[in-house]
Write a protein that binds this DNA or RNA. Sequence first.
DNA 1: CCTGAATATTGACCGCCATCAATGTAAGAG
DNA 2: CTCTTACATTGATGGCGGTCAATATTCAGG
Lengths: 115, 115
Amino acid sequence: MNALPILEPATKEACCPPAGTVLGAEAAKEKAIIFKALSDPNRLRLLSIVKAEASGESCVCDLTEPLDLGQPTVSHHLKILVDAGLLQREKRGTWAYYSLAPGALDKVAGILANL
Amino acid sequence: MNALPILEPATKEACCPPAGTVLGAEAAKEKAIIFKALSDPNRLRLLSIVKAEASGESCVCDLTEPLDLGQPTVSHHLKILVDAGLLQREKRGTWAYYSLAPGALDKVAGILANL
DNA sequence: CCTGAATATTGACCGCCATCAATGTAAGAG
DNA sequence: CTCTTACATTGATGGCGGTCAATATTCAGG
């Protein structure tokens, strides 16, 4: 039940990679998981809502209504976003609070730039 | 047979959107199409190969071998990337040359930043 | 026109995914 | 301990998506 960490070297290259290399098969597979997490309209909206929240975090009950989806479906999408490293989950009492994983969106932008 | 243009207003907002809004349903659907195009390992490798090419463009025959995929499958992936606005296609003689669509990757980075 | 080469399209198969109903789990209230 | 609330998990279902074989199209050469 662990959330497969997408093992990430954080900043493997200081800035820009050699720029002459081509994406390998398994590297492509890892990065595709992140984009697959972003490839669903409802998950994009989930990220947008969480980001727009002033407190920086939202509970599941606040996310169910605006998407017009069932609670199990929302939990499913949130799990996918957490597994992809895009969201963080913190449980306080009965509630589960989700927030943007720090630097996650920048990391995705870096993937695009380096491709 | 037209390639559904993903109708794109280019630069609808000069720079940054209001930043207080939340992603709407149909806006999320449009943007999800782009990420869906990026959500396949082989398509990520296609983009990487095209980008790494010194001439800036590649023909299908050069893309089939490194991916270890059949020619129809590669053409199918290329069509998805073109429809998403990520690649450009130019046919010269019997060959079809694919190149990165100008500013496409920057646009995706912008989507992430504005979310 | 005919042939061959490069690419696109079609049809079919199969696995993955989004969704929901039902159930399970965990924590606070009484 | 019991009940309720908030969330996660399971199982089932319908549809989308990646892949290939076969075929169509388009173009250059003879």
